[in-house]
Design a protein around this nucleic acid. Structure first.
Lengths: 232, 232
DNA sequence: CCTACCACTGTGGTCTAACCACACTGTAAT
DNA sequence: ATTACAGTGTGGTTAGACCACAGTGGTAGG
């Protein structure tokens, strides 16, 4: 077993045993190195992996944001991993879109009416009506979909959905260039968003799921994904 | 931007541009360090991250298995990430089980009859009838479920399903200790497996999905997950 | 001529020791 | 009381060395 894996094991044990909790701080790199009788290099490699997994965040200096702190951001971490695998051509974009439809439909069908996430989603829609450019529109769109997914109350589904969105975020940006009329598309997307949210708030989960599926598939189909899985 | 992130970017670009393909070999760490004008340490940190993501595999020595080569194993990588987040108590085991039910039901419903994965699944069931102990039974069980998921032909769903299974693998091992009568449970599980496979091969996707959902939920319920999300 | 051995080479794995930038903290000078 | 500044501890980065490993190729012995 390689040295940095030993460090990883040790840290994972600290987490499992509850000696290290969310928001907690890891010992300094030098301290850990001495405690585990390994070099600081090995400790750093382990920390880097945890950082890539979204389990910790490293901050320099001193004070509240300093040191290596335990966080919980599986979404961005999974997203990076998927993005890399898309780059290797091993994961087709079409499969990602399909999975996204699966997860988001499920979430829309089971969204709990009355949770704060749905209020946030409504506010995001208002902001989208006044988005100055495409990029800010897409950013708000991403947050809307994530909020909707979170309303179902399953953190794993939320994280995976967010990661899928993140993995193809670059594509979304490129693809809007393919659209014949962004103004028309934007209007349509916004109307679909409101219809989805209305269906959810009316406890009509089945309809919400259908609308979400059509919404996502419609966008990527219009932008040309599916027929051409590797647009680059 | 930190130095190792620069290296990551460079490697990701090589992958996106197709200059580096699956099975290809990265330049040596020393060569990359010189080419990018960074230290070997930074290169190594980047490679470590890619290794943790299941994008590359590092091998010492010389010959075919030596050097850092591009692979595609998103499943194990995502599994490790999820496992760590479970350790932080951020992802409840119940949510993972629920997501697994979602993905596997979907896959069972859409499995393509006639694909080699289903043949392999059948062989695995035969082997399970003669599994000498619980651990080998669980290992075969894992492979059976993965094969079933792969039969649906969506690589993202397959990878995620495998990762979910891996994230709670340790739990499965612990939980079998809670079962009152392993022999009876094993017999029931094997019967359910065969029923699922039969439904799939009969093109009865709906029934297969139902059976899979009941199969998974039944096992974890019997073992005591759901009522007690953090058994440790 | 063939075989067995062995030094050579290039790979990742690890370690040490130093320096940097950063951000807060406490103290001393104003 | 306010300000300026040295001190301290954090992660970030680098250079250089040594190790184990595995295939390569030459060489000595049969």
């Amino acid at each position: 077993m390689r040295t940095h894996e030993l460090v990883l094991q040790w840290i994972e044990k600290q987490l499992s045993d509850g000696d290290l909790a969310l928001g907690g701080r890891l010992p300094g790199e030098r301290a850990m190195a001495e405690q585990l009788q390994v070099s600081r290099t090995s400790v750093r490699e382990a920390v880097r992996i945890l950082e890539a997994m979204g389990v910790v965040r490293a901050g320099v200096g001193s004070g509240k944001d300093a040191g290596t702190v335990v966080i919980a951001e599986p979404g961005s971490a999974l997203g990076s991993t998927l993005r890399l695998h898309v780059a290797t051509r091993h994961l087709p974009v079409a499969d990602i879109v399909e999975t996204r439809v699966l997860l988001e439909s499920w979430a829309a069908e089971r969204a709990h009416v009355g949770v704060p996430e749905l209020v946030e989603a409504a506010e995001l829609l208002d902001q989208m009506d006044e988005a100055p450019d495409i990029d800010s529109f897409l950013a708000l769109d991403a947050r809307f979909h994530v909020a909707l997914a979170q309303a179902a109350g399953n953190s794993v589904v939320s994280a995976m959905m967010a990661s899928l969105r993140g993995a193809i975020e670059n594509y979304a940006g490129e693809l809007t260039g393919n659209l014949p009329d962004w103004g028309a598309t934007s209007t349509r997307l916004r109307a679909e968003h409101r219809a989805i949210l209305t269906a959810v708030n009316n406890n009509d989960g089945g309809k919400a799921a259908e609308l979400v599926a059509a919404h996502i598939q419609g966008f990527y189909k219009e932008a040309g994904v599916g027929a051409n899985p590797s647009p680059k």
